[in-house]
Structures are given as C-alpha cells and as structure tokens.
Design a protein around this nucleic acid. Structure first.
Lengths: 337, 337
DNA sequence: TGAGGTTATTGAATCGTTTTAACAACGGGA
DNA sequence: TCCCGTTGTTAAAACGATTCAATAACCTCA
C-alpha cells in the first residue's frame, strides 16, 4: 500500500536505520547519503506511520485538551494558545468538548488513555483527581486549566475566579446598585462556585447590599434567557437592580430576555448587567456588555509549557499559576452621561 | 510501566491470543476463561495501546475533521453531529480548526496523514482536490463538508448556498428593498462565492434592484464591524437600504457598527440586515437577526455516514448530498407592525 | 607502516497488539 | 473402534519505525 522505510531504504540503497537517521538525527549522516534518501522519500511520497513511531516511543506526540464548551470563545482562545505553544515543540493538540457532561469528559479521557497521549490539559467538571492520578501512573501528566486543583497534587493554570467575582460585584455596587442577583450554575463547576464566592464577599463588605442566587443547569444562552424571563415575570419592585451572570453566554441570554419585545426592561437603567470572560460577542451585544476579562490564550500557552516540563521530568512538583482577571466596563453597567 | 496483553495473559494463565479474543471476539472464548481474563484486566488496570492496534490494523479508528472556524457555532454543530454519528460505530473525531488559513489547513492534513486516520471530513478553503487525491492513494477517503467539490470525484455534503443566497435577497426585495449590499469574503471561500451568486441571480430578476459588493478579508465579527463602519461613514443617501452578510458573524459586526452610539442607523428601518447560518447568537442580537438556516448537525452526521461507507468500500462512486437552506425572518428585516 | 581514534553505516532487536494456521480435546455417527 | 467435525486455545508471524551495539571505512600521527 503506502511506502515504508523499508521501501525507501531499498530505493536509496541504504539500510532502514539510515533512513531513520536522515529523518531524526540528520547530523549523523553524510550529505551525499542524505540527499539520496531524501530523493527516494520524495519519489515514493513516503509519509511516516505515526502509530509505529509511537509504539516504539511509548507515547504519542499529541496533547489532549478537554474543554467545558467549544462554543464558548474563551475556550477556543485557550485552545489556540495551547496549539500554538505545542506546535513550537512539534506537538499537536487534539481538542475534546465535554459540553459540561461527565460522560463525555470520561469518554475523552479514555480516548486519550488508549492513545497514550503525551499529556492532558483539562478544565474538569467535577472532581477528577482520581482519574488523573490513574493517568499519572501511566506517566501521562495532567494540568488543570481554568481551575485550581482541590489538593495541590496537580499543576494548574487558572484565573482567580473569586477575585473576578468580587471585581464584578464591587463594580455593580460602585455604580450604586444594591439588590444584586447572581445567575449561574451548575454548582459542580468550580468556576461558578468561585465567582459566587467572590460575589458574596463583595456583598458582605457592604451592609446595605443583598445577593440573590438564581441557579442554572448549564452556562448557555438559552438557560440565561430562561432565567431572564423569570426576572421579567416578576413585579418590577421585586426585581434585582443588578445581575452578575456567571459567564457572557448566560449574560447574553439574560439580556435578550430583558430587552425582548413586551418585556422592555431597560439596561442598565432598571437592571445593570455584567458577565464573565469578555468574549468577542460581549462588545457586540444589544447593549455592549460589561465583563471580566481573562488572558485566555496565555492560559493555554502556559498550561502546555508546564505540561511539557512535567512530561520531561515527572518528579517535578506541581505548580499553581494564577492570573488576575480584569474588569471591562461597558454600557450594560454604566449609565450614559 | 503499564500492563500489556502479555502481563494479562500471564496473570490469567492463558496465551496473548486468547486475551485479544476476549476483547475483540468474545464469542470465540469460553465463559470461564473469559471471566478469568476480565478479572486479570481489571486487576492490572490494563488499557489497550492504540498505537499497536493501529499499526497492525493499518489505520486508526479516528476520523479527522477540519473546519473553517471553530468559533462559528455552525461548525461546532456540524462537529457535534459528526461526533455522535461516529461514536455509534466506535470511531472518534478529532477536530482541527483551519481558521480560514491554508497553512493551518495543510498542517492538519499532514497530521491526519501521519496518523493514518480512517477518513477526513473537511470544509476546505481553496481547491484541495490534489491533496485529497493523495490521501485517497493512501486509502484515506475524504468527504467535503459544506462545499460541493469542483469536479465530482469526491463525495460532499452541503447546503445549496446559491439557493440560500437567492433566498436571502429575494426576502429583502419582498420587503421593499432595492439597493442591496452584499458583505463578505474572501472569495477563496466557495460558500461566499455561491451565496453571492445566488444574490446576483435574485437581483437580476428584479430590474429595479441593484447589488453592491463589499469585500472582506475574513468572515468575522471584527471584519463585519469595519465594513459596517464604512457604511455609516457614507452620506445617508449613498447607503444601501439592505445588507446581506455572508454569515451571521459578519452580520453581527455590521449590526454593531450601525447601532453604535453616534451612528444610530436604524435597523431595519433605514437598513435591513440578513445573515447566514442562523447561529444561536443570531436571535440574541441587538435586533434579532434574520438569517438562512442550515441543518448543521445533520450535515456532520451524513458526512460521517458517507465516509464510513467509502472507507469500507473504496470502489463506491462519490455522492453529492445537497440540503436545502431555509429562511428565518426576524426583526432585522421585517418592520414591526 | 601500523596503532588508535573518529565517523558513517548496518543489522537485529524491540515496542504491543491482531491474526491465522495449527493443534488438542471431545463427541457423535458409522 | 475409527474417522470427522466442532470448539477452544495456542504459538508465531506480522505491522513499521527507532535504537543501539557492532562493524567498516577512513584519517592522523608516531
């Protein structure tokens, strides 16, 4: 079928070992032979069989990445950062979308395990340290992304979500809001829990401020829309005067519900709204959305860097890298002058 | 390091062949032995090494998918459809994002080639039939997604974009618009060309309608925003009275520019706006966006189906499946009563 | 000239699974 | 009793690249 090293070797009149050397340690082989082998490779259209290479090497040159939601631009930015960094060292990234479902998450981890990937980057749904420990026994390192590990036995690259939550709510309070609602869920997602915790802390620092929590089953536009409709259905005096949505997708759903024909709740006049992630769409929304920005590509990049180091030296002790989030105030929280 | 079939065989007191049989053709092995082997597998935490399996099999049980833009929900829906269908036959999908860049596209195809994937699904940027032909020589079938092939030597699953373009513009005309602008690009993307062609046909059918073409370098929110700003900068009488954006991302950018503070071009009153793809965000936009809907998950699903058939029987002649797009009219084109 | 050192190349073993031909054990029919 | 067919199991040969110890070829210097 397709040409193998053996065919190349035969055509070039050298041994298979030499062909391998031409590809992997060119400095070991003379210019004349190298040229002859290259010619044979081109003539036969030889492409290395990665399975065989992997089998011998014991692991692949692929890094697995599982994100909570590919449709969330935050994660595609993380993925891009990871890809670019990985490519620099000759690794490729294969992307899995858990879609916040544990069974999908497990399926991808299984896949990565049978594929003997070089390492795993994951933004986990619940607690998966047991699963990751098993991978580590197979010498497959793992780095948590956008999430600090519960114990510190795994490295992680994250943004301080507690801080981000506080940032968001402090901003709302500084704009004169007092009856704050947090909309987010499910609580299995650590980011949601952390952002809520930050929100609670900020509210606690202001005796006259209150925080209401509205639970969601997923962080999506649709869920946000439903929650927003719930607010619209209330008597105006029972509505919060500010909403902190657990991410921008949710915020966009809420926004849509509030502005919907027949609802006409004015943003930010009646309800101020802030999201999280600062995705591209945030600034393109009905009312440009205030949000909390995270250095997404940098997260992916850093995670790969740590992963490669740990793969090279499994004895390395785990590191926790935490980036700081940044407030981006737009019209959804700031009344026009 | 990690356990192999040999270890399992030793522990269970059988030969490696039997262990393989337990996993791949359980009907060939007696219940007693099967149980003993299973116990050994569990005890050792044995996980099959896919590289070795692949090496023997000659190809992997993975399908490669390259999309133009992972951030475009249309493609994530296609990917999801493909994944689900593939999983049903025990295949997994690895997702690559070409981001409309030919070098990234080439990188992924190279990766798939060395990995000897079972097949390739791709929404190509330019003409890559030569590249795909090379894959076919390696017995790796390819199916074009969201794009008909120029020659019919490859199967494809697509939506009739010419029809979709016509649908969009006919709708605009039926709403009383006459000075239509098409915003999209680059022209290397066949979808853009087709949608424009459809638009031209629709305009041609109405002698008093005109079509202006505004070129973009990419189908993104940002590019759309820039083009939208260009319209705003014109004298009102020089502006089109309707815009057909090549996809929803572009449309959202245009919309944002038009509604931006200081611009205040009213949609649809002054300019009607229609996009393409009907992504989730479309209905969540400033003004809910009219769009052309494609059966995205179905596309992915169908593509995998054809791919698997062709992989099983390379002699099969290529098929072209074309789905029909559907108009979804919302407020961005229809004046409120 | 020959010993010693360097460099380029080879051949064979190896990775872990699947597959296939061969074989053993057993029962039923003639 | 012998032969044949069935069923379950085994041993060995692949798959294709990498690696390493062994060898060959050449150069340098005494």
């Amino acid at each position: 079928m397709s040409a193998s090293v053996k065919d190349v070797a035969a055509l070039a009149g050298v041994s298979v070992g030499t062909v391998s050397n031409v590809m992997n340690r060119p400095e070991k082989v003379s210019a004349a032979v190298s040229a002859r082998v290259q010619a044979a490779i081109n003539q036969l259209g030889f492409v290395r069989n990665d399975a065989a290479r992997q089998l011998r090497a014991g692991h692949s040159s692929t890094i697995g990445l599982v994100v909570l939601d590919v449709r969330n631009p935050f994660f595609t930015d993380v993925a891009r950062g990871a890809e670019d960094r990985a490519a620099r060292d000759g690794f490729s990234v294969i992307l899995g979308n858990s879609d916040e479902k544990t069974d999908r998450e497990a399926t991808y981890l299984d896949l990565f395990e049978v594929q003997r990937v070089h390492g795993v980057l994951i933004s986990p749904i619940g607690d998966i340290t047991d699963r990751l420990r098993r991978l580590r026994e197979r010498r497959i390192p793992a780095v948590l992304v956008d999430r600090t590990s519960d114990d510190t036995s795994f490295s992680s690259v994250s943004v301080d979500d507690v801080d981000g939550g506080a940032l968001a709510v402090e901003h709302l309070i500084s704009q004169g809001r007092r009856r704050i609602a947090f909309i987010g869920g499910p609580m299995e997602i650590q980011q949601v829990v952390d952002r809520l915790e930050g929100a609670r802390a900020a509210v606690a620092a202001h005796p006259d401020a209150t925080l209401e929590v509205i639970h969601l089953d997923a962080l999506s536009v649709i869920e946000g829309r439903i929650a927003g409709a719930g607010l619209v259905a209330r008597a105006p005096e029972d509505r919060p005067d500010a909403v902190f949505a657990a991410n921008d997708l949710v915020a966009m759903g809420v926004l849509q519900a509030l502005m919907m024909q027949g609802a006409d709740v004015r943003v930010p006049d009646q309800i101020a709204l802030i999201g999280y992630d600062d995705i591209d769409f945030a600034s393109a929304a009905v009312v440009p959305l205030s949000s909390i920005r995270q250095p997404s590509a940098l997260i992916g990049q850093t995670a790969v860097e740590i992963l490669l180091e740990e793969a090279a030296d499994p004895a390395l002790s785990p590191r926790q890298v935490v980036f700081q989030p940044k407030l981006v105030a737009r019209e959804s929280t700031v009344r026009r002058a």
